[in-house]
Design a protein around this nucleic acid. Structure first.
Length: 781
DNA sequence: GCGGACTGCTTACCT
DNA sequence: ACAGGTAAGCAGTCCGCG
C-alpha cells in the first residue's frame, strides 16, 4: 500500500528523470519526455523540413529528440500540429525561438513545468493510496505520513537578524513521537536537549527533519529555511534534507521565496492561513487564537536576544509553543489541502503554494489534456496590460430600505455563477462558435455552442456532480449517525469542490488566465443580474416586500403582518413556483429567518435570528481598520437595538464608553487601529497614518513586507492624524477627542440615524444623561 | 482667510 | 496575483463669500 507524496525530476546523464516519492520507496520514470507544440501556417513536409533546417543551422537540433505530427483541438477546431519532443526540460525555453519563424503561427504549452506536466499527462492522484499496477485508487483515506513541526529562534540585536553574524539559538520540534527544544545553552525545561554549539544544533536539525514526510513551518519559506541555509553555509554544512539526500532548494516564486525539500512536503502554514482564514493579523498567535481559542505565550522578536542572555526559560516555552501550534495548525489545514491536491492533481507542496486561480488553471490543463485540447498561452505583457484596462458590469445591488425590519426571510441562488455557466454552456471554447451562428437567442450579442460542452462548463459540472454525490453520501451517513472519520473526509472533499467551483467565474476575468474571456464573464454577470432582478419582481408580485439584495440573494418581509408559520409557508410556495421555472440546475433556496434586522446602506446591515444569534455584515464591527473600542461599542449598540429595540439604552452605552475614554480607562490594545500595507511605502501618492508609521519603522531599520498589517494609535497633538499615528509601544497617550469623534461616534451614529433617530432626539437623550461632548458631534453636521 | 464641499486615493468589506 | 460593487476615512484642493 503506497501513495505519491512528492514528485520532481532530476538530471542524470543529461536526461530528465521523473522521481516519484512514495511513502515506502522512490520510483523513477525514465520514459517521460518534455515537449511543446508548434502550430504551422501550413502543415507540409516542406514546412517541417524548413524548421529542421533552421534548428540545424542554429545548432539547436541536438536539443530535439523527436518531432511528431499530432491531431489536436486548437482554436475550437481539430488540426494537425507539431509536437516537439526535447531531450531535457531546459531546452524548451531555447526552442521557443521557433515562434519567430515564417512557417510558424504560434507555439503552445511551452511553459508548463516538467514535473507538473507529468501529473497532467498521467493518471496518478497524489496523496491517495494507489494501486501502481492497475493504476487506480486503492483507498480514499488520507495516507498516514509522519509529520513534524519545526521552528527556530534567532539572536537579534535590536534590529533584523543578520545571518552572517546572528546565530540560531534554538530549534523546536513537535511531532507525535518527538517533542523537543534543542539548544546549546543549559535551560531547565522538560523538553530541552542541549548540544555543544550552533554547528551541532544545525546538524541535529538536519538529522531530525530527515525522519519525517511532512514538515510544517510558520513562514519557513521566507525565514526559517533561508536563514538555516545561510547559517549552515557559515559552517560549511550542506542542507541535504531531501529523501534521497538532495539539498533543499530555495527559489524565488514571484515576490516570495519557497523552500522545497525533494521527497518531503514542506508546508508553510503562514500563506495557507492568509488564504483560508479571514483575520485582522496573521501572526502565529493570532491564528492559534482563532482556531483553538488559546492564548499562546508571546515574547516579541526584539526581546529574544535579551531573554537568551538572561537564560530566561520563557524563551524555551515560547519556542516550544511555536512548534506545538504550528503542528496543530498544520493538522487543521492538511485534509483540505490534500483534497485540493487530489482534485487538481498536483503535489501537496505545489498545491499549498497555489492561489485559487492557479488551481483552476491546473485543473483546466488536466481536463484540456483529457479532451485532446491545446491550452491557450498565457498573455504576453502587452496583452496583460490590455486586459487590465477592460472592465464590465458585475452583480446587481439593490439600495436597501433603511432602518429596522421584523420577520425577515432571506433567499439565495444555489451557486449562482457556476450554475449559470453550466446551464448556458458559457466557455471561451463555446462562445460565438461557427456551428451555432444562426442560433436565434443571443445574450449580449453572443451565443454559446449547442453541440459541444465547453471546457469550463464540463469541468464545473464534474465538480458540482462530484460534490452532490458526496453530499448525498454524507446525508446517508448522518441518518445512520455515522459522524466518523470518513464523514469528516467527505466534508473536506465537498468543501474543496465548492471552493474550486466558485473560483471559475473569477478565473474567466482574471487578466493572467490562459482561458481568459471578458465576454464570457460579462455574460455570466448579465445573466446573474437578470435572474435576481426577475426573481425580485416575482417576489414582490407574490406578496413579499424586498428590503435588500446583493448579487445572488435577497432579504424580504411579507407585505402584511402574518405569523411566522404562515410566512414560512409563503416562502415555500414561492420557491416551488420560481424553481419550476428556472432552467437547468439553477435553484433558489430559502436561506433563513430573522426576527429583526437593521439595514444601514448597501453592503452594511445586521440581523438577529430566533436564537439571538447576530450576523453583522460590512459594518465597522467586522472591519479591521477600526479600533476595537469602536467595534465593541457598535456591537453593544446593535445588540441592544436588535434584542430590545431600546434607543435610550443604546445611547447610555455610548455615553459610558465616551466617559471611559475621557477618564483614560480604556485598554491600550482596544485603541489600536490595524491597516494593511498594500505597497512599498515610497509608492503611496497620499499621506496616510499606516504609511507614515511604516516609513518610521523602516527608518529605524525594521523589516516590513508588502502585505504586513500595521497597528497604530492616534496620539494627542496639533498635527495631522497621520503625523500623530504611533506604534502601540511608542505611544505615550491617546487623543481622546479623536477616539470619540472619529472612532466611537460615527459607527454608532450611522446606525441610530438609519433607525430614524433624529439628531434632535439624540440630543434629548443626551441631556437626560448629561452628555456634553456627544452633542458637539451632532452639532457638527 | 475661513470653513464646508468636493475629489482622489486608499482600505476593507459583500456577493 | 479570481471578479466587480460599495462605503467610508484622510489629505488636499476648490469654492463661495461684498
Amino acid at each position: 500500500m503506497d501513495a505519491l507524496v512528492d514528485l520532481t525530476y532530476k538530471t542524470e546523464n543529461n536526461r530528465a528523470i521523473i522521481y516519484l516519492y512514495l511513502i515506502q520507496k522512490i520510483l523513477k520514470d525514465e520514459n517521460f519526455k518534455p515537449y511543446f507544440y508548434v502550430e504551422l501556417k501550413e502543415m507540409s513536409n516542406n514546412s517541417i523540413e524548413k524548421i529542421k533546417g533552421f534548428l540545424k543551422k542554429n545548432g539547436l537540433f541536438h536539443y530535439v529528440e523527436d518531432i511528431e505530427v499530432v491531431k489536436k483541438q486548437i482554436h475550437n477546431k481539430e488540426k494537425e500540429i507539431l509536437k516537439i519532443i526535447t531531450k531535457h526540460p531546459k531546452y524548451v525555453p531555447k526552442l521557443r525561438i521557433l515562434k519567430d519563424l515564417d512557417e510558424v503561427l504560434d507555439i503552445y504549452e511551452h511553459d508548463i513545468p516538467f514535473a507538473k506536466r507529468y501529473l497532467i499527462d498521467n493518471e496518478l492522484i497524489p496523496m491517495t493510496y494507489w494501486d501502481f499496477e492497475k493504476n487506480k485508487i486503492k483507498r480514499k483515506d488520507i495516507p498516514k505520513l509522519k509529520a513534524i513541526a519545526f521552528d527556530m529562534e534567532v539572536y537579534n540585536r535590536n534590529a533584523e537578524p543578520d545571518p552572517q553574524k546572528d546565530p540560531i539559538l534554538m530549534a523546536s520540534f513537535y511531532a507525535e513521537d518527538f517533542k523537543k527544544v534543542i539548544t546549546y545553552k543549559p535551560f531547565s525545561h522538560e523538553y530541552v536537549e542541549v548540544v555543544k554549539d550552533e554547528k551541532e544544533l544545525i546538524e541535529r536539525i538536519i538529522e531530525i527533519l530527515k525522519n519525517y514526510d511532512i514538515i510544517y513551518t510558520y513562514n519557513g519559506d521566507n525565514f526559517d529555511f533561508p536563514y538555516l541555509k545561510k547559517r549552515a553555509e557559515v559552517y560549511g554544512i550542506k542542507l541535504n534534507l531531501g529523501r534521497d539526500g538532495e539539498e533543499i532548494k530555495i527559489s524565488k516564486g514571484g515576490m516570495h521565496l519557497r523552500s522545497y525539500i525533494p521527497g518531503r512536503v514542506h508546508i508553510d502554514l503562514y500563506s495557507i492561513a492568509r488564504r483560508l482564514l479571514h483575520l485582522t493579523k496573521y501572526k502565529l498567535e493570532d491564528v492559534a487564537l482563532e482556531l483553538f481559542g488559546v492564548k499562546k505565550l508571546e515574547v516579541g522578536h526584539q526581546n529574544i536576544g535579551k531573554l537568551w542572555e538572561e537564560n530566561d526559560e520563557k524563551l524555551i516555552e515560547y519556542s516550544f509553543q511555536d512548534a506545538l501550534y504550528t503542528f496543530k495548525i498544520g493538522e487543521y489545514f492538511l485534509p483540505l489541502e490534500v483534497m485540493f491536491s487530489r482534485i487538481v492533481n498536483q503535489t501537496l507542496f505545489e498545491i499549498t503554494r497555489m492561489s485559487s486561480s492557479q488551481m483552476v488553471e491546473y485543473l483546466l490543463l488536466k481536463n484540456a489534456f483529457k479532451n485532446n485540447t491545446i491550452a491557450p498561452n498565457k498573455p504576453s505583457n502587452e496583452e496583460y496590460q490590455r486586459r487590465l484596462k477592460e472592465s464590465y458590469e458585475g452583480g446587481y445591488v439593490k439600495e436597501p430600505i433603511r432602518g429596522m425590519h421584523e420577520s425577515i426571510v432571506s433567499f439565495d441562488f444555489k451557486a449562482l455563477y457556476p450554475s449559470i455557466i453550466i446551464s448556458h454552456n458559457i466557455s471561451p471554447d463555446t462562445i460565438d462558435c461557427e456551428c451555432c451562428k444562426d442560433e436565434s437567442e443571443k445574450i449580449l450579442e453572443h451565443w454559446f455552442c449547442k453541440k459541444k460542452e465547453g471546457l469550463i462548463p464540463k469541468t464545473l459540472r464534474n465538480l458540482v456532480e462530484r460534490r452532490m454525490e458526496i453530499k448525498k453520501k454524507m446525508k446517508e451517513k448522518a441518518k445512520k449517525g455515522e459522524i466518523d472519520e470518513e464523514y469528516k473526509l467527505f466534508d473536506y472533499e465537498q468543501k474543496s469542490l465548492k471552493i474550486l467551483a466558485n473560483s471559475h467565474y473569477g478565473y474567466l476575468a482574471f487578466p493572467r488566465a490562459r482561458w481568459y474571456s471578458k465576454e464570457c464573464a460579462e455574460v455570466v454577470t448579465y445573466l446573474g443580474r437578470k435572474y435576481i432582478q426577475q426573481t425580485i419582481k416575482e417576489a414582490e408580485k407574490f406578496g413579499f416586500r424586498v428590503i435588500y439584495s446583493d448579487t445572488d440573494g435577497f432579504y424580504a418581509i411579507w407585505k402584511e403582518k402574518i405569523s411566522k408559520d404562515e410566512l414560512i409557508k409563503k416562502v415555500h410556495e414561492f420557491l416551488d413556483m420560481i424553481n419550476s421555472r428556472l432552467p437547468g440546475n439553477m435553484e433558489l433556496e430559502f436561506e433563513g429567518f430573522y426576527k429583526r434586522g437593521i439595514f444601514v446602506t448597501k453592503k452594511r446591515y445586521a440581523l438577529i435570528d430566533e436564537n439571538n444569534k447576530i450576523t453583522i455584515k460590512g459594518l465597522e464591527f467586522v472591519r479591521r481598520d477600526w479600533a476595537n473600542i469602536a467595534k465593541k461599542t457598535q456591537k453593544a449598540v446593535l445588540e441592544t437595538l436588535l434584542i430590545e429595540g431600546d434607543v435610550e439604552k443604546a445611547t447610555k452605552i455610548i455615553q459610558d464608553v465616551v466617559d471611559d475614554l475621557k477618564k483614560g480607562k480604556v485598554n491600550k490594545e482596544d485603541l489600536i487601529i490595524y491597516t494593511q500595507l498594500t505597497k512599498d511605502p515610497k509608492e503611496y501618492k497620499t499621506t496616510a497614518p499606516h504609511v507614515e508609521v511604516a516609513k518610521r519603522i523602516l527608518k529605524k531599520g525594521g523589516r516590513l513586507r508588502i502585505g504586513d498589517v500595521i497597528g497604530y494609535i492616534i496620539t494627542s497633538g496639533e498635527k495631522s492624524i497621520s503625523e500623530r499615528a504611533k506604534l502601540p509601544e511608542e505611544a505615550e497617550d491617546y487623543d481622546v477627542e479623536y477616539y470619540i469623534e472619529n472612532q466611537i461616534l460615527p459607527p454608532v451614529l450611522r446606525i441610530m440615524e438609519a433607525l430614524g433617530v433624529s439628531k434632535e432626539e439624540l440630543k434629548n437623550f443626551g441631556k437626560q444623561v448629561t452628555l456634553d461632548d456627544f452633542f458637539k458631534i451632532n452639532k457638527k453636521e
